[in-house]
Design a protein around this nucleic acid. Structure first.
Lengths: 186, 186
DNA sequence: AAGTTTGTTAAGAAAAAATTTAATAAAGTT
DNA sequence: AACTTTATTAAATTTTTTCTTAACAAACTT
């Protein structure tokens, strides 16, 4: 086989992977992950554990970019550091099970959402309560404050439900309710 | 009641809402919605149907910003145009039920994820298949191509599962499996 | 201990995104 | 039909983010 043919075949192989890497990056972009971090994840998805220099070479970017990129992905819980003996370089591996990806990525965000919002609601309700209880405050405003207080109160069940959803995912209960199957029903 | 007191009370009311608006915007930022779009949603969440000029005034931003912002939120399916008779201005209302927000927002993104990735996998597998079937291609590369083909194939059940998840949310089945309750188990 | 290798932080440059003003379009009113 | 009112598009500006080069720090080797 000539080199030319071999190169073409190799290029075709790389192109096929690039198609999927791009779509993964585009997908992650939907959820607020930058394109370059998504690209890095996609690249790692099709590789084994990689060093920063291997990433740099694959993506044609600088090493500090790889360092921060990998850190971001670790932060999303979808990349982990591995220990490859024989080298003193750090190596990293991508989560390749998309169910685990889903679990790690969304549960982290959802729990953060719960924490942030319940905390803000708590503080806001304290402030509203002062208005509601203060009889020197204009009646219309107190009424408005009460309605807003209730609106906040009424949103809490949603956050409690999100917590339950996360717990169900982590316990596997969600996958009992919605089992994985392989039918293409698209 | 003096105006000063009244102003303080009103400011306190606005501040309480601002706390929650901020946290909503921060939350939406987690999912890739820009801060200003999140702020707009939060503002609308605490209001009734609003015109572009009302938004502009509340947020202190330009009208084109409001126009594009509201369009983005409509695109996420969390804001809808309403028809207020008597005015020829467009009015918009935010989805106030967070369960509905969750449903609209995530199902749209998840379905898009499925579409993008299954499509890319389909195209990539066609390309890989050509390599695998071509006996003039180097054996190692063909083997690599086969492994990559399988890796892509193995990811499909995840996308089918995402479709099922979306269907379960839309049918209400998810809420049967994980019921909403009001216990604060935080 | 001096010199390498590797990874991270800092500073500056480049690129991308958001926002505003200005211009245009569309629809309604007099 | 000319004039208003309202919303959107275009162009230009500002701001933010990302990325790179350079400097630094830490750990290992010789």
């Amino acid at each position: 086989m000539s080199n030319q043919q071999g190169d073409n075949a190799r290029a075709s192989f790389e192109q096929a992977k690039a198609l999927v890497i791009d779509s993964i990056a585009e997908t992650m972009d939907l959820y607020g992950v930058t394109r370059s971090a998504g690209n890095l994840y996609g690249t790692m998805y099709f590789g084994n554990d990689m060093t920063l220099d291997e990433m740099r070479e694959k993506l044609g970017m600088s090493k500090p970019s790889m360092s921060t990129g990998v850190k971001k992905l670790q932060d999303y819980n979808i990349v982990k550091q591995t220990f490859r003996k024989g080298t003193r370089r750090q190596t990293f591996v991508a989560e390749k099970d998309f169910f685990q990806f889903f679990t790690n990525f969304f549960t982290k965000k959802w729990l953060r959402e719960v924490r942030i919002n319940l905390d803000a609601i708590h503080k806001a309700q304290q402030e509203l309560d002062q208005l509601i209880e203060d009889e020197s405050v204009d009646g219309n405003l107190r009424e408005e404050a009460l309605l807003t207080y209730r609106q906040m109160e009424d949103s809490k069940p949603y956050y409690y439900w999100l917590q339950k959803l996360v717990a169900s995912i982590e316990s596997g209960k969600l996958f009992d309710a919605i089992p994985v199957d392989e039918n293409k029903d698209q």
